[in-house]
Amino acid sequence: MTGRLTSKVALVTGAARGIGRAQAVRFAQEGADIIALDICAPVHTTVTPPATREDLDETADLVEAEGRRVIPGVVDVRDLRSLETFVTDAVTAFGGLDIVCATAGITSRATLSEMTESTWQTMLDVNLTGVWHTARAAIPHLIARGGGSMVLVSSIAGLRGLIGVSHYVAAKHGVVGLMRSLAAELAPHKIRVNTVHPTNVDTPMIQNDHVRRMFRPDLEEPTREEFAQAAKTMNMLDVPWVEPLDVANASLFLTSEEARYITSVALPVDAGSTQR
């Protein structure tokens, strides 16, 4: 099928690379114009190499290559006022808003006894409050449009506990609670709200030395292949991780008319990880 999002406008945070880029490009392939936001800078307490403005520009180029319009913006989801201003200006330029993907997120690792207050707070500020900010900035425009769909990106950590990332688990569980409340609040406005829950995804968030050593502490510099062997143990299917496109396709389904009566659902894209 093609053209499932023809004449739609989609807002995607975390769009410079990874899942956010995959959502932006996949939605453009199906006919949507894109508002693509990313901080394009390091976030304190994280070790993941940051996205750059060049990454965001590449996402914009990929969207335009699909024949769609795009408005890219360097915006921190922790800054509500800047987010509201940029979204309002972009929605005005496009004439409306139909779809929201709250995808921006960070990762870090520490046991609770070792975790600093800053590490805890930064995680919640980005991965939970940032999602709330995105919803807050977008909802008036969805209501004005007469309906729409929101996909909040959670994680398998939003459905189960994981060791050494209690702050991440708490934030991602919080996203599920936010989704369920928003689904109930916004149903009268014909706005559907759902979450997606990936296992490890093949992005820079996991493909870095810090995460590889976390999975293979027995090795000084584990290779991608050595990391993959260890990562497979998380999943039911014989894969170490899923691809950004897999999450984008699930998001596309949830935002399309094929899912017109699906709301308040937590959809795993996890190779069976949560059932292992």
Rank of each mutant, 00 (worst) to 15 (best):
V25S: 11
V25T: 12
V25F: 11
R26F: 07
F27S: 05
E30F: 09
E30W: 08
I34A: 10
I34T: 06
I34Y: 09
L37K: 01
L37C: 00
L37S: 01
D38I: 01
D38N: 04
I39R: 02
I39V: 14
I39M: 02
C40S: 06
A41R: 08
A41G: 11
P42K: 01
H44L: 06
H44I: 09
T45H: 07
T45W: 04
V47W: 06
P50E: 02
T52P: 01
T52F: 00
E54M: 00
E54I: 02
D57K: 04
E58I: 05
E58H: 13
T59I: 02
A60R: 06
D61S: 09
D61H: 09
D61I: 03
L62Q: 15
L62T: 08
L62S: 09
L62F: 05
E64G: 02
E66C: 15
G67I: 04
R68A: 08
R68E: 08
R69T: 09
R69I: 04
V70Y: 12
G73N: 05
V74M: 14
V74P: 02
V75I: 15
V75C: 11
V75P: 03
D76M: 11
R78S: 15
R78H: 10
D79V: 04
L80F: 15
R81K: 14
S82V: 03
L83K: 09
L83S: 08
F86R: 10
V87N: 07
V87C: 06
A90Y: 08
V91Q: 08
V91K: 07
T92P: 00
A93V: 06
A93H: 12
F94G: 03
L97V: 04
L97Q: 10
D98H: 14
D98A: 04
I99K: 04
V100K: 03
V100Y: 02
V100H: 03
C101T: 11
T103W: 02
T103C: 12
G105V: 01
I106V: 14
T107P: 00
S108V: 03
S108H: 12
S108A: 13
R109A: 12
R109C: 11
A110L: 08
A110P: 02
A110N: 15
A110Q: 13
T111V: 07
L112N: 13
L112C: 10
L112T: 13
E114K: 13
E114I: 06
M115G: 06
M115K: 10
W120L: 10
W120R: 11
Q121I: 02
T122E: 13
M123W: 07
L124C: 05
D125W: 00
V126M: 10
T129Y: 07
W132N: 08
W132T: 09
H133T: 10
H133M: 05
T134I: 07
R136I: 06
R136T: 11
